[in-house]
């Protein structure tokens, strides 16, 4: 409790100098990234703030607050004053899955936050180890049905988007496998390449290089349409599997109760940055698609995601607190 007080007090001191909405921005804007530097949310935050900097008039400071799959940083955003001087970039995990997964979260994206925009997204794809003897998703599903609960599904961790995509896949196809959680995407990918695990759902951008070099096989893409980079890989919908459109996404959020004028300035600046050709280029290289939707769309999108994953969690009986 005391620690909370100290943290809150230091925040208040920093933000004390913040002035009225019409002068906005008149001070540094802190952009919380609730993960360690180097990941997708961090890259998104740094790429976008870098591009915002020139026109924004005030420095945007990226602050990494890692912990508990984004919960530590998100809790700080929820506690921050809604004055536009503290915003956050976070992922599907922090905004979309955690609230569906954990009852004891110190924040609720629907109650404590409002979304500015969903900035980028990348589809999850079904990959297998190179030595697995299947040539298509149909063959894999047939094999899974023949030998239920034997194939090893690697994921970046319990409650990660790739874990829940696997869970959704089992539910939609009536199959099952063994979930093998890793601490992060890197180790999970390494074990797929090394042949220590069989199947995984990973972000398209993260595994595109491995697929091109033949170190993984890509069987299907959980997107609305085929990827122009991999025109031969079918979508799940084409395979007759419904409800398997899964994107990992990064969104900008703010504490609830933002002044409309401040919100407009912020959203305008973020959208402006996302439209810049060099930013588009960076995200294209990452395998990310720039979405840049409106705040209302973003709020609805996040609520839908939470509802969707709540169902998957319930149907799959995934309970982390055991």
């Amino acid at each position: 409790m005391f620690m909370r007080f100290v943290a809150a007090a230091s925040c208040a001191a920093v933000l004390g100098s913040a002035a009225l909405a019409q002068d906005y921005p008149s001070d540094n804007v802190t952009v919380i990234v609730p993960f360690a530097p180097g990941g997708a949310s961090d890259t998104t935050a740094r790429t976008v703030t870098q591009a915002m900097q020139a026109d924004f008039g005030q420095p945007l400071v990226v602050e990494n607050k890692p912990g508990a799959n984004g919960a530590v940083g998100a809790a700080e955003l929820a506690r921050a004053k809604p004055d536009g001087y503290t915003i956050m970039v976070a992922s599907i995990g922090t905004y979309g899955i955690n609230p569906a997964l954990r009852a004891d979260l110190p924040y609720d994206p629907r109650e404590d936050m409002e979304m500015l925009t969903v900035a980028v997204r990348t589809p999850n794809v079904l990959v297998t180890r190179p030595t697995l003897e299947v040539k298509s998703a149909e063959e894999l599903i047939a094999m899974l049905k023949e030998q239920p609960d034997t194939m090893l599904f690697a994921s970046s961790g319990v409650g990660s988007s790739d874990h829940l995509t696997a869970e959704l896949f089992w539910q939609q196809t009536g199959t099952s496998g063994i979930h093998v959680p890793y601490s992060g995407g890197g180790p999970a990918q390494t074990d797929i390449i090394g042949g220590h695990a069989d199947v995984s759902f990973q972000n398209l951008g993260a595994v595109a290089g491995f697929v091109r070099e033949g170190q993984m096989k890509m069987l299907a893409i959980a997107a609305a349409e085929r990827s122009p980079d991999f025109p031969d890989v079918p979508t799940f919908k084409e395979l007759g599997i419904e409800g398997m459109e899964v994107y990992s996404w990064q969104a900008f959020g703010a504490p609830k109760g933002l002044d409309p004028a401040v919100k407009e300035t912020l959203v305008g600046a973020i959208h402006g940055a996302l439209e810049k050709p060099e930013v588009q280029e960076t995200f294209k290289n990452l395998g990310f698609e720039v979405l840049a939707n409106t705040p209302a769309e973003a709020d609805a999108f996040v609520a839908d995601e939470i509802a969707r994953w709540s169902e998957v969690v319930k149907a799959g009986n995934i309970t982390p607190e055991e």
Binding site: P37, D42, R46, T47, F210, E281, G287
Partner: peptide
Amino acid sequence: TLGIPSNPVMALMIGALIMQGIQPGPS
């Protein structure tokens, strides 16, 4: 050779390369 970081500093270097338009990986 793989684009997989062994530690947090490497993860940051990969982030730096990505922002330069280079996707670290097997190629």
